[in-house]
């Protein structure tokens, strides 16, 4: 990182965060209205993590995601229309309507899949990173997971192998303080998941996951290191989800206080970034609003596309099945 970040990249970071926020808010409303079937795990509040990491990646780089995966997909370049179609269960969706919210994948964009299994992503990312090294590409694999998933054996095995073989992998822990409804203090004896990194033989770093610039810089360094053949990194981003584990509500719940939610909302990644961009004359309030408006127009069109699309035919149920 020898030069100052370009205004183009700053605006790109902002746009990615806005796209995630607006998509998730609309998806949540559609779920509450009963128009989208099944459960949605929404990423509102955590936008800086996916955006700050993904700006450093190309389509050839791979990611694995979690049950809370819409934000990763959008930040990696996922199209609203095909995402909404997938949530609606339509044949035009990324998984032809047969995957739903927790399984969106697209190989062209390097999205190896969201994953309903907690801790399901790390071994897949480790495998992709092994492939990158074996094929001598400069591509990297980024694995997103939560504080809860960091207790799973799959994570430990993947981290161990990635460090052992010095693979181009980045383990991005989105530590939002809760494994579903369980406070972190009730499921692990440590507070910083990054403390585990030296035990695997890789560096562990903590950044403010509500600050997109902090994530962008730290992820950029970890990714550059991986591309240079210097091995994996565990990057822990301290973040927070505003909404409930599933759906929207978020307030008036017993496993956390409303005051806690309000305190984190004061650090909102989009509002603070817009304020800083405005101070520096990079993005006026009007220009920021235009980004929100354009995003909303695209969402409206995408929802219509999804609603107008057909459900998959019953005969397609055995297609695209690996085994």
């Amino acid at each position: 990182m020898s030069d100052n970040i370009s205004n183009e990249t700053l605006l790109d970071l902002h746009r990615r965060m806005v796209r995630i926020r607006r998509f998730e808010e609309n998806a949540g409303k559609l779920m509450e209205d009963g128009k989208i079937p099944g459960a949605l795990h929404l990423y509102v509040g955590e936008e800086a993590v996916a955006s700050g990491v993904m700006v450093n990646l190309t389509d050839a780089d791979q990611i694995t995601s979690t049950h809370r995966g819409h934000g990763h997909c959008i930040a990696k370049g996922g199209a609203f229309d095909r995402m909404f179609a997938e949530l609606f269960g339509r044949s035009t969706g990324y998984c032809k309507g047969k995957g739903g919210s927790m399984h969106i994948s697209n190989m062209e964009l390097g999205i190896l899949g969201a994953n309903g299994i907690v801790g399901g992503g790390p071994p897949i990312a480790m495998g992709a990173a092994f492939s990158n090294k074996f094929r001598k590409t400069k591509d990297v694999a980024v694995c997103f997971f939560g504080d809860g998933a960091s207790n799973e054996g799959s994570f430990h095995e993947a981290a161990n192998m990635a460090a052992l073989y010095k693979l181009p992998a980045i383990f991005v822990c989105e530590n939002n303080g809760y494994g579903e409804y369980t406070p972190q203090a009730n499921h692990q004896a440590i507070v910083d998941v990054a403390d585990r990194a030296p035990g695997y033989g890789m560096p562990g770093v903590i950044v403010d996951g509500m600050d997109v610039m902090a994530v962008y810089e730290a992820a950029g360094e970890a990714i550059a290191r991986a591309r240079a053949g210097e091995g994996p990194t565990l990057l822990e981003c301290k973040t927070y989800r505003y909404f409930d584990h599933v759906g929207v509500r978020g307030m008036g719940l017993t496993y956390r206080t409303d005051e806690e939610v309000e305190e984190w909302r004061k650090k909102d990644p989009i509002e603070t970034f817009e304020s800083r961009l405005a101070e520096q004359g990079i993005l006026s309030a009007e220009a920021a609003q235009a980004v929100h408006d354009e995003t909303m127009a695209e969402i409206k069109s995408a929802i219509k596309f999804a609603e107008d699309s057909p459900f998959p035919a019953p005969s397609a149920v055995t297609e695209d099945v690996y085994a």
Binding site: I190, V191, D192, A194, D195, A197, P198, P203, G204, V205, I206, V207, E217, A218, E221, A222, R225, T233
Partner: peptide, 16 residues
């Protein structure tokens, strides 16, 4: 625990 574990060669100082 900051990014100097990556850009430099600083040690991770764990809480244990």
């Amino acid at each position: 625990k900051d990014v100097r574990r990556l850009v430099a060669r600083a040690s991770v100082f764990d809480n244990q």
